[in-house]
Simulated assay, not measured.
Amino acid sequence: MRFSGRGSEFAPGKPFTSRIAYAAAPVTADPRAENIPGAPAALDWDTTLRFRHHLWSYGFGVAEAMDTAQRGAGLDYPATRELIRRSAAEARSVGGAIVAGVATDQLPPGPASLDEITKAYLQQLHDVRDAGATPVLMCSRHLAAATREPDDYKRVYGELLSQSDKPVLLHWLGEAFDPALAGYWGNHDTVLEIIDEHRDRVAGIKLSLLDADYEIEMRRRLPEGVRMYTGDDFNYPSLICGDERGHSEALLGVLAVIAPPAAAALRALDEGDLDAYDRALTPTLPLARHLFAAPTYHYKTGIVFLNWLAGHQDHLTMVNGAQSGRSPQHLLTLMKLADEAGLLPDAELASRRAGAWLTTVGLA
């Protein structure tokens, strides 16, 4: 299989300034370790951290230890804590921006009380602050299972926000990304009420509902100074561009694979060149919609596959054996869309790797 190598046209350039954009970064597993379902996560630290430098070089911040890093899908909390610590140190070394996920995944699976959930959240909040990253309060499967009414969310989040010495980001991950989070907040007004009550402690909210109309409605209802961060991997070009009443910033998993053209698009947006913005970003949308197709929670497999083709890592092994999460046919389509979007800068490398992979899966 041959590729165009068109991605070589997108080189790092001057920082973009009109939007804030964080790329939710994947992790690279150690292929020599027992990264099978149920085993503790073992990472290739050098490759994992080198990829973060790639994102910083294009002007993106890193959203660390989010669902793209297989949080809640094989990345256990000891590995998560070490990942945040190492990434935050690397960010300081280059002046890169970093936020990091705070959850309750150090608790064992199964029922937990609201007090136990709050304590788990607070432990991770302190770990992220001690590492030097901005906390992102992620949705908790334990909390989703334990709540009986919207006030339970207000109680837990109120305690977390009252104990945060600096503003944090909230995070709303929809059911498509994690079925265990169905019905989170109890109703959609609950999170807005939490933000309004604690607006001095909330810098923004990341919304991953794959519902562009609701995101626009919600961002128009946010208090002044609280930013909307789109996590909509289906509709990000229009949401980031915005309209006469505002725009969304970005905190996206897809940015981990489209960083070069996305950076070019955001620099064009700085200049007010909407045609150049569309030329760089719109071709990535078919890839993103395929990458995040149902079952959406397996999108991490596609991200790692594309990063392997692009030369960011040397193998396809994933934490928890997640490399089996997508079919060969899905990945075959994905590589074609990646080439069309200009995401494979080294055509020779990508072609060689694609040929080897096609042989192993019986599609050669």
Score class of each variant (00 low, 15 high):
D130P: 01
V257T: 12
P286E: 11
D339Y: 09
A23E: 05
L209V: 06
G132L: 13
L331K: 05
L331W: 04
D105F: 14
A146D: 04
L210S: 13
C139W: 00
L363S: 08
D127L: 01
S208K: 02
A350M: 05
A133F: 11
D151M: 09
T147Q: 07
P345E: 15
G186V: 01
T359L: 14
L125Q: 12
G311Y: 08
R199K: 14
G95L: 13
A73C: 07
I36S: 10
K166T: 11
E348F: 03
A24K: 02
G74P: 06
G5R: 01
L169F: 13
G321T: 04
S238L: 13
T47R: 14
Y121W: 08
A293L: 03
A88E: 07
V202M: 10
K154Y: 00
T301E: 13
A322Q: 13
H247K: 05
P328K: 02
A356Y: 02
E34Q: 11
G59R: 05
A341Y: 07
L173C: 10
A176D: 14
T282F: 14
V62G: 09
V102L: 10
F292T: 05
L269P: 01
I117G: 03
V62T: 04
F292D: 04
D211Q: 05
M228T: 00
R227V: 03
S208C: 12
I117T: 08
P12V: 08
D151L: 12
A33V: 01
L137I: 15
E175W: 03
A341C: 10
D200V: 08
T190W: 10
A203L: 14
S208N: 10
R19G: 04
P108H: 05
L107T: 00
D213R: 13
K14G: 13
P167I: 09
T134Q: 15
L332S: 12
E348M: 11
A39F: 03
F177A: 15
Q329V: 09
T28C: 13
F16L: 11
H126I: 01
C241I: 01
M218L: 15
L349Y: 00
S4M: 10
V226L: 07
R50E: 15
E82S: 05
T147P: 00
A180D: 13
R201F: 02
E340T: 05
T284C: 15
A112I: 01
A322K: 09
L239S: 02
L209M: 11
A42I: 06
T333R: 12
D346A: 06
P15N: 06
G311V: 07
A347G: 09
Y22Q: 06
P286H: 13
T333V: 11
A25W: 00
D243P: 01
T282N: 13
E197H: 08
A262L: 10
R267E: 14
I258R: 02
A65Q: 01
H188D: 14
P12W: 03
S324A: 14
T301F: 03
P283G: 13
A73K: 12
M228Y: 00
I36R: 13
D314P: 00
L181F: 09
T28W: 07
S238D: 15
T284N: 06
H126T: 12
H198F: 14
